[in-house]
């Protein structure tokens, strides 16, 4: 045959474990196309009723923040404690707020 093809693309797999919950990343796998990725994901990641729905996304289509941006992106939230309800002192008389 012709020269060996490069490996199948990598897909990231997200599974909804039950109705009412969001899809959660569970791992990745290789597949030639989306249909095969779904069916492989079923065999690899849901052999024990772990899912009711599967998303597959080509790994190369995911844009991720880079670890070196971590401080820039997330540190500004550190000094904004007033975004949390525990920041506010309430008189004891106020219950259930």
């Amino acid at each position: 045959m012709s020269a060996p093809k490069t490996e199948w693309p990598l897909w990231e797999v997200f599974v909804r474990s039950r109705q009412g919950l969001s899809h959660k990343h569970v791992g990745s796998l290789h597949a030639a196309d989306a249909t095969m990725a779904i069916s492989n994901a079923r065999d690899v990641y849901t052999r024990r009723q772990e899912g009711t729905s599967i998303w597959v996304v080509k790994a190369e289509d995911i844009t991720a923040s880079t670890p070196s941006d971590k401080d820039v992106l997330f540190d500004p939230a550190n000094d904004k404690v007033y975004r949390h309800p525990t920041f506010y002192d309430l008189p004891d008389e106020v219950k259930n707020m």
């Binding site: 045959m1 012709s2 060996p4 093809k5 199948w8 030639a32 196309d33 095969m36």
Partner: peptide, 16 residues
């Protein structure tokens, strides 16, 4: 299994 992998890749390419 090489021919299966190649066939699946060719099919995916053609479908795309």
């Amino acid at each position: 299994g090489a021919w299966v992998r190649d066939a699946a890749a060719a099919y995916a390419e053609k479908s795309a």
